[in-house]
């Protein structure tokens, strides 16, 4: 198969299938999972067997069912946080790039300060003050990560606003709405779509880390990060239990990354480049 005149590589297929499976899992968790997520079906950390394909967890719940439900929580929360991140980051980035210098300077300096610190450290500060709940977590992550998106969106928009066609629209007297939505946005989409994928990976891993640290999504809802946290002790007893949720996180991230890599490679070559090479 070819898309945009280029052959789709195998890696993109693998990534696509992983992403598809993740989507199916989110939508149909109750129908796929063999057991309800909270039901105790066996002993503590039973090894994988015919009944419980992936064994059981720290209090004897079915690992596979917990994984399926956990994926639903982890992926959807990361998705919501990423969408919010992109809206804030791209919105501010475009405004900074296409209005006056003062607005740009004010936003950029605030972002500089937020960028001067790792997200995790700022995040921990906020959680220490406000406590951990899912809305607080999502908003905190979105605000902090949007500073990274802001940088990119602003740079992309800046590269487009210097194009003469944007100037033509401005000289004609078009309003800021037309300039942003009709002139800039359509041309900024490819890098922003790729950024969305990368941001999702980052957010997804970040939320998993928070849950692992016991600060993210709180029980009893299953999510992959806290499943690793809850089952970490199994390692000391020679079990593999935490590897399943940890591996699931890795697989989904790889899948999205593979798709993003492919998207980036499509847009890496401008059409019609190299007339005389």
């Amino acid at each position: 198969m070819t898309i945009a005149g280029r052959k789709v590589p195998v890696t993109a297929y693998i990534g696509g299938i992983i992403v598809l499976l993740a989507v199916i899992m989110i939508l149909f968790a109750p129908w796929i999972a063999p057991y309800p997520q909270t039901k105790i079906v066996g002993g503590v950390w039973d090894l994988p067997n015919a009944k419980d394909w992936l064994g059981t967890d720290s209090i004897g719940r079915d690992m596979l069912s917990r994984l399926i439900y956990g994926g639903r929580t982890s992926v959807s929360i990361a998705l919501i946080a990423t969408c919010l991140t992109m809206i804030i980051g791209v919105g501010l980035g475009f405004v900074a790039a296409s209005t006056n210098k003062l607005v740009d300077n004010v936003i950029s300096r605030i972002v500089d300060v937020l960028l001067a610190m790792p997200i995790l450290i700022f995040g921990l500060m906020v959680f220490a003050v406000l406590g951990t709940s899912i809305p607080i977590m999502i908003i905190t992550i979105a605000v902090l990560e949007s500073t990274r998106v802001f940088r990119l969106a602003r740079a992309v928009a800046m590269n487009i606003t210097v194009m003469d066609y944007v100037q033509v629209a401005r000289l004609r007297g078009e309003g800021i709405g037309w300039v942003i939505f009709r002139e800039i946005l359509p041309n900024a989409l490819p890098p922003l779509v790729a950024e969305f994928g990368l941001r999702f990976c980052f957010t997804f891993l970040f939320i998993a880390s928070l849950s692992f640290l016991g600060l993210g999504i709180q029980p009893p809802a299953a999510d992959w990060g806290s499943m690793v946290h809850d089952n970490a002790q199994a390692i000391s007893f020679g079990g593999f239990a935490p590897l399943f949720p940890a591996g699931a996180i890795a697989v989904v991230t790889i899948g999205v990354n593979l798709v993003v890599d492919w998207l980036l490679s499509i847009h890496a070559l401008p059409a019609g480049a190299g007339a005389e090479i």
């Binding site: 990976c201 891993l205 880390s209 990060g225 590897l243 940890a246 996180i249 890795a250």
Partner: peptide
């Protein structure tokens, strides 16, 4: 690409399982 996608704790546990356990 794989190691970027692995959360730190996943890498840790794999290493623990292999080299310690």
């Amino acid at each position: 690409l794989a190691t970027i996608s692995f959360p730190e704790f996943f890498v840790s546990y794999i290493l623990i399982v292999v080299f310690a356990s």
